[in-house]
Write a protein that binds this DNA or RNA. Sequence first.
DNA 1: GTATAAAGTTAGATTAATCTAACAAAATAA
DNA 2: TTATTTTGTTAGATTAATCTAACTTTATAC
Lengths: 224, 224
Amino acid sequence: MNSLTEENYLKALFNIANKDGEVNVAELSKTLDIKMPTVTSMMKKLSGKKLVHYESYKPLRLTERGKKEAGLIIRKHRLTEMFLVEKMKMGWEDVHDIAEQIEHIQSPVFFDKMDEILDFPKLDPHGSPIPDRNGKITSKDYKKLSECQAGEIVKLAAVINTSSAFLKFLNARQLHLGLKLKVKIIEPFDQSITISYGKNQLETLSNVVSERLLVEEKADKIQG
Amino acid sequence: MNSLTEENYLKALFNIANKDGEVNVAELSKTLDIKMPTVTSMMKKLSGKKLVHYESYKPLRLTERGKKEAGLIIRKHRLTEMFLVEKMKMGWEDVHDIAEQIEHIQSPVFFDKMDEILDFPKLDPHGSPIPDRNGKITSKDYKKLSECQAGEIVKLAAVINTSSAFLKFLNARQLHLGLKLKVKIIEPFDQSITISYGKNQLETLSNVVSERLLVEEKADKIQG
DNA sequence: GTATAAAGTTAGATTAATCTAACAAAATAA
DNA sequence: TTATTTTGTTAGATTAATCTAACTTTATAC
């Protein structure tokens, strides 16, 4: 069994890995707000447990076992977020911190019950995929709103940042998942983007925001 | 804020205190399965935090603050047990270990939501009172089944032990809370007790069991 | 291509929570 | 009332997870 601390390292490694599955010590240190020497020593420990591939001065990588264990923690986190929103009527901006704690509960039955009650959801309230029972994740490849062209019509599919502040910002503008957005103007100077949606609503979003919104092509062709 | 470890000491002190609110180091050590010197040093620490009254060689007592904090942890534990049984359809024999973990979650909103969804329950699934928002507990004074006389008719009101093994033992005999029991025979030699209940069911329970079952007088007089 | 900066490691200290061994006080029994 | 047992404390070691200071390796900049 892994300690709560070890679980947090595994989860962070999983979350911040690049396409090759690599993470630098400095990044991990920053993400967890833990000094680099501490990270190094924990990586040696996790390497000893065959959860991380560690070689001096090389990028960190989770082993297959490490990936699985991390995936299972993230599964618990996302199932919990879904349960809190769907069954306990909490806002999507309020569930992250609670899920951050509940993800460490050791009880397969508890999470199986959640899964069943939620009817085996595939996505969490922020649009992120919920890993399966083996910790495997299957994610669609959405693009960022910031990468869209003027004139495009897209659907808001997921948010990258799940901080309360960011989600409250979206709430205040009635920006929720599933919403159809039309890209009106992209300001070349600062990449701010003006979109229209809902009942004639117009909003201009900074690049900081549009980088954190994931969208999918509106499948209009199929429907009409 | 108290650590998870400190919380476990507070809870144990609350749970095993005698009528005067006193606990011995040896008892606490045994309950927590932690050696006496460790308990002593933690008591000094909690004394420093004004949660425990500690004097060398004297019995331990929670301060008012300590009692409140312990009560609030027990509140979270019991609300959780109720939620798991009522809303997640788990058996009363399966909820203790999960509640033992969830009681440490730091999130007033989370437990307030539970409380609301459960419609502010006063008792947990084992018949134990749920402390109020101030950690205050109001308990009826049930008597033990082992203290009943032959001929008495009583109602099963609560169980003292919440171990899975004990509760499965009760399940196997259809012994659930609220059940009307008639005391038939008390064997003087070993204090085993024979009761009748339900559809002509007869069971003989050892003293070990009847000591752990709390009953209240059947209020037959009032009803007829 | 050397100098500087950034990233990573080693060594050693610190804190919380635990332990064992040895000792002291209080309770119990002879 | 003295001896023995139980209970409780002190002292010092251990482990997990953290830190700072100093050093090394790798990357970046001129």
